[in-house]
Design a binder for these strands. Structure first.
Lengths: 351, 351
DNA sequence: TTGTATGCGTTATCAC
DNA sequence: GTGATAACGCATACAA
């Protein structure tokens, strides 16, 4: 049969519509973009012809003539650093997809697995394709791409807080960590450790800050020995937890940088013959799908990744549309939410 | 500072290059596309100017003038049906990203969460943007979109086997299931059940076929009672396993449609006071990230999703480029791979 | 081998 | 309110 056929019956152009409606192409363009008032009569006629021919304007030509391509670029640079990130990636992308679609935009994606060099040149490609703005998906604190990009004259927005005063959309990691540790405190814990995330990530610094804030607010001392450094992986969590358990004084609970670290930590805890949550309560971060699958199901902090993506797309469209944004730069912090499962025990534990 | 600035210093056009190199725009186009022989001297000169001005041709204008936009569309329709699919989605997308980048293509993505109506119209948007071909990411057997799309004159390729004779790229589910069950057999099992996947998915039918084939080949009878129907979720696996365990004769092993189902099944098995793998061996399918996180780590079948995506993009580019593909339609089946972990016990079990 | 001229499908600037 | 028409940046048939 006609596998991947190429018969291509020529799409109608604005000329076809104009001719068939007995007007000029300009008029058709007017009713299309509502950029100039048109008499209701001709408007009606033109619209009926458009429907009849099922005409759709060419995005290419539109982009060339007017400046609006209605395409956004999404560059997922440096995303491979993060562990367990597939679902984050997917959710953010879905959010971007939803919002761009709703706003009449499309988006191009540059894969995260392209390596260093590719990052830059995939941006170039974006520019060639005429994207109106670029959303940077990254976890790094300093993003050298940002200033480079801005020199291209293309608005940029980062998903994930970054240095400088670039617009970004992120979750409030300080708040999320604060809530997690406060939960531990409400359960009666007084000695809590934190498995710190990879250095250089804003999320690492912010979650540490939230942890400290909760401690301070409860009048609990901040023990430096209980802030164990590491990175974002299960292995890192495993090792960090072992180091923590080797110390003279043990905490009764740990707040891990993320779910992977938490799962690694649980493994280490059990290896020492201790039980979770009875001997050691554990809180993760991120609410990765695995969090609900592991044993015990992880109490963790859920980040609204879909909303992050959607909001980023909206802000980006606004930036592209209105040129520079109103007053202040678009810097948004969404609230994460504590998800209580079983890795900390129930609050009945208190009674 | 210059947040999301719009200073836009006009990009050089082909005219700028032509003028500065003392040639016509046609000549510049020739060296750019290598479509017409150019004397090495002028070629050298043009290229140096191109580098000097760091000129990059406009994709928009190129698409309008020539017919090649070098953009692919990826429509993830019906993907929300699948459980645990985030990592599949992400891997496939990464593969597509890698290949498209390597081939000088870009791709647009239409999110899976857009609902029925949106599926169709996101395709329309793709056409407006001038995509050269569309990759359909879907799990359904019959894809009504396919024939519709072909009428647009745009080549289509499906990721996931589908009805009709459309080109597709998929993994060999029959083979994967066959290997999984053969593994069980090699471990000494003679009574194995299958938790069947959602009806209507080619993967469900194929994995069931592979299961039966392995049984038949080993001279084992195919008990209909041990082919428990269900869908793709953890809950479905949980319920199906309970139904299976309620039967008079119990198998010693189960091959689950996917990892989520397997995890649900394990929960049910334990609820009955049985142990995995001692009392009941379990094999999953898909090698989702959770598979290695759960207890016990799941023996499962890994699908080369990244390669699937990359191959799909390559085939698609070939289809778009060469019009119709050489002889037969591009129908590729990649081999999945058995990943042995701990949910079936070790083969020492036999000795 | 190179230059000229036209067209791709729109939008936008003028006139009317 | 509407209609010519010139860009937009590039590819290409044709001429030289």
């Amino acid at each position: 049969m006609r596998q991947g056929c190429v018969l291509r019956v020529a799409r109608p152009t604005i000329k076809d519509v104009a001719r068939r409606a007995g007007v000029s192409t300009a008029t058709v363009s007017y009713v299309l973009n509502q950029t100039v008032p048109v008499s209701t009569e001709t408007k009606r006629r033109v619209e009926s012809v458009i429907k009849e021919l099922s005409y759709r304007p060419s995005g290419l030509a539109r982009g060339l003539a007017g400046q609006r391509t209605r395409i956004l670029g999404v560059a997922a640079l440096g995303f491979n650093d993060l562990a367990l990130s597939d679902s984050f990636f997917a959710e953010v992308i879905k959010g971007i997809g939803e919002a761009t679609y709703r706003l009449g935009y499309s988006f191009m994606l540059s894969s995260p697995s392209l390596g260093e060099e590719a990052g830059r040149s995939s941006i170039d490609v974006f520019c060639d394709k005429g994207v109106e703005g670029i959303i940077l998906l990254n976890g790094r604190e300093d993003e050298p791409e940002l200033s480079e990009l801005s020199r291209e004259g293309i608005p940029v927005l980062s998903i994930g807080r970054c240095a400088g005063d670039w617009p970004f959309v992120d979750t409030d990691n300080v708040y999320g960590a604060y809530e997690a540790v406060k939960h531990l405190i409400s359960l009666g814990h007084k000695k809590m450790a934190h498995l710190v995330g990879k250095p250089g990530l804003t999320s690492s610094a912010d979650r540490l800050a939230g942890y400290r804030r909760a401690l301070a607010e409860a009048g609990l001392p901040v023990e430096e020995e209980w802030e164990v450094s590491g990175s974002s992986t299960k292995e890192s969590g495993f090792q960090a937890m072992h180091r923590l358990l080797a110390q003279k004084e043990r905490p009764t609970a740990v707040f891990a940088f993320n779910d992977a670290v938490a799962i690694g930590a649980i493994k280490a805890i059990r290896q020492k013959g201790l039980k979770v949550p009875e001997d050691m309560a554990v809180v993760g971060y991120g609410d990765d799908p695995v969090a609900s699958y592991v044993d015990p199901p992880l109490t963790t902090v859920r980040q609204p990744m879909f909303e992050i993506g959607a909001l980023a797309a909206e802000k980006m469209a606004a930036l592209a549309h209105g040129g520079k944004i109103g007053g202040e730069p678009a810097r948004v912090l969404l609230r994460p939410k504590l998800i209580i499962r079983e890795s900390c025990g129930s609050s009945l534990w208190l009674n």
